[in-house]
Design a protein around this nucleic acid. Structure first.
Lengths: 201, 201
DNA sequence: GGATGAACAGACAGGTCTGTCTGTCTTAGA
DNA sequence: TCTAAGACAGACAGACCTGTCTGTTCATCC
């Protein structure tokens, strides 16, 4: 039904059920807070199966983040593809964020939270870094496409905006955060394209 | 020497040593990661003394955050007092942030990290909320002083900027983050004062 | 039909965590 | 000098966490 699991039509594979449970619990409650036992209970999977499939809790966490990252990549690229103009493409990413943040279960950026919890030398931190680097590169590319005078600067500004809004939406439960970020993004893009040096090209 | 501790001149009180150790360890490594044993070891204090003085780990965490909040309040107000113009006052807060973020032990915003780790109904979360509300109110007040067309909007924008830069400086170890935030803040302030409605007053 | 392998349940080991408790020592003040 | 309080060391209880292991069930495939 989903990927393989030849005959049993109803149930997903143990691996997918584990990743599903990990996604819900790690994301909503944090990585350190949630123990293995709660994950296997929700997934309906034996503990031995988890360790056969993933080897350790850390590797399960890494897989959970990897999957989140791939889903987010797909979501962002799909949004971008809806528009032609780079300015609209950038703003559409903030629209997508607004939709995600409106979900009552929204708990901030999974990568930011994981990065804050992880030890600096862990494989988890490496996965977080990878995802954040991809996002920065995407915003920077769009900034260049939009004709920003300094694409790297605008890229950093947009990512910061994204991070800040995500934090406010989560910690402060601020429903305006996404809208404010979109407004600010438009302002920054226009300012960067007009150029700090007065003369538009 | 510091506050009381009548006769022993060298050593600070057990309470202060505990708060000092908590400040270093909780801030650098996270609240969940650091156990009571490591704190009392670094503080050179008996476990019984900790529980006599604070009653629980949660209360120790709360006190640690409360102290951080008060120190930050003082630091921000002192910075503001150095300037007359609201615009300069706002930018001076980003200068102060740049100095803090340049410290190699900088580990992001203590309140953001604690807020991400804490349960939503805990006293820790309440302390975080208090601190964040104070900061937002401060930025909003300065935005109004600066003559922003929409002070609440500019306040939210500046706080988001602050949060985003803090995250980037910590997770990405990005040394440019503070400078970028300052640049962006100047741009946002000017845009807000000029007004989106074309006519400056 | 028998073999293979994935998934199951659940006990167990070894470690860590918070919080309690006992008892000792030192110092300040009556 | 006696007392009371603060601080000390460290054992202990009880919970929880990760990871291992044993043995069972069941579907698939040769």
């Amino acid at each position: 039904m989903t990927t393989k699991t030849a005959s049993s039509p109803e149930r997903r594979s143990a691996r997918e059920r584990l990743l599903g449970a990990a996604d819900e619990l790690f994301y909503e409650e944090g990585i350190q807070t949630v123990g293995i036992d709660r994950i296997i209970e929700r997934a309906g999977v034996a503990k031995a199966s988890l360790y056969d499939l993933f080897g350790s809790k850390e590797e399960l966490v890494r897989s959970y983040l990897q999957r989140r990252h791939e889903l987010r990549q797909a979501r962002m690229l799909e949004r971008i593809a809806r528009h032609e103009q780079p300015r609209e493409q950038i703003l559409s990413l903030f629209d997508a964020f607004a939709e995600v943040a409106a979900n009552p279960k929204f708990s901030g950026c999974a990568f930011a939270r994981a990065g804050a919890e992880a030890r600096p030398d862990s494989s988890i931190k490496a996965t977080v870094d990878e995802s954040r680097a991809w996002t920065l590169a995407l915003f920077t590319r769009l900034a260049a496409d939009a004709g920003a005078a300094d694409p790297q600067l605008l890229g950093l500004q947009l990512v910061s905006l994204y991070d800040g809004a995500s934090m406010s939406a989560y910690i402060d439960r601020n429903p305006q955060a996404a809208r404010v970020a979109r407004t600010t993004a438009a302002l920054l893009v226009d300012a960067a394209v007009a150029g700090p040096k007065r003369n538009a090209h």
